[in-house]
Simulated scan of single mutants.
Amino acid sequence: MIVKNTKLIASLSLLWPLISYADCNQFELTHNIDGERLWKDFSYLASDEMQGRKNQSSGSKLAQQFLVNRFSEIGLKSFSEDQKYRLPFRYETTFSHIDGVNIGGYLMGRTHPQQFIVISAHYDHIGTRGTKVFNGADDNASGVSAMLAIADKIAKQGSEYSIIFLATDAEEKGLYGSKAFVQNPPVELRQIKYNLNLDMLSQNQGKNRLYVSGARYHSPFKKVVAQAIDEAGLCLVNQHRRNQRGYSMAMGSDWRKASDHASFGKVDIPYLFVGVSEHAFYHTEKDTVETVDPEFFQAAVETSFNILRLMDKLPE
């Protein structure tokens, strides 16, 4: 997720009106994903070996190769045999350009094979500073490993729509990977039906809350979110970012621009955004695997999979 003035946001969000929640004291697992494999992928992506996965770094290249290998193991189709899941891009900025590599693959749907849902998660983070490694476990090794777990599930049971699994690069620099994807998609843009964006799924810090945002901008998603809340094994809260973190107050920030879903929203592709709220370890060297509750993380991934399943049931 993009760096923000977290101290200002935290202080201002205290002034924001409180919203009521369901009982969030406990959660339960449905075991509908492979928790052991999830944790293995998560731990490797957030390891010191990855060196914080900064865009264009050696750690980034290591993460890219890992994702290519996992996509191949799962059985995802590549958009190009030459590139083998790699979708390199150059994004022109006002005074320079950003180079990066998205990793993308897909599975064909049964009922609507020419209509696509994109499930996205950025794999880059902020790298190292001196001797400190910013592992980015929650941000966003969690979202990427969740996407891999969901891809593995879809590969086994199938889907109605075709599903694109997109690991984006250079999100931390300004959403450049997802911007490049929607500007030059591997399928026609009109074929992309929805986006499900996963960013920061693992840090509950005792709150046991996961948030899903975006339903207010696409009416059919309201039923999806309501059903997902009813079926969730944890406390799933609708529409979190502005209320929880004071986005509309702090420096003119807006949660709708906080992660890759913003790029899809800008080209009128409806999205749902799933994640936890900002926390004390956000963009610090303490965002490590050791600070994560494995059961909460698995429950969050299971809930994310269920949200995708409900999106996949929507009529064309």
Rank of each mutant, 00 (worst) to 15 (best):
Y271E: 01
G136E: 06
L87E: 00
V292S: 09
G35E: 04
Q244S: 13
L210P: 02
S162R: 11
S248D: 05
A10P: 00
A46S: 15
Q191F: 08
G105C: 10
Q205H: 11
T131Y: 06
K156A: 08
V292R: 01
K286M: 13
R216D: 13
A170K: 03
L76S: 03
A215R: 11
A121M: 06
I74F: 03
F66M: 14
S202H: 08
Q56E: 09
A180V: 07
T291C: 02
K193D: 04
M251E: 15
M200H: 05
A63W: 04
M311E: 00
Y211K: 08
A232G: 03
S11D: 11
S277R: 14
Y176H: 10
L87V: 08
S20N: 12
Q83R: 13
R90A: 01
F79I: 07
N197F: 05
E36W: 03
R90G: 00
E92A: 15
M108W: 04
P113Y: 09
A280L: 13
S219W: 11
P88W: 06
K207R: 15
R110V: 08
K4I: 06
G177W: 06
A170I: 12
F95G: 03
H112Q: 13
D41K: 14
A46H: 05
L38Y: 10
Y106W: 13
N140V: 06
I117K: 12
L8T: 11
Y106N: 09
F89L: 04
T30C: 02
Q298E: 09
T128N: 10
I119Y: 10
G214D: 04
H283G: 08
I9M: 15
S162N: 07
F116C: 02
T6F: 05
H31C: 08
Y282I: 07
K207N: 09
S159L: 06
K54D: 05
A258T: 05
S248T: 14
R209Q: 14
L308S: 11
E231S: 14
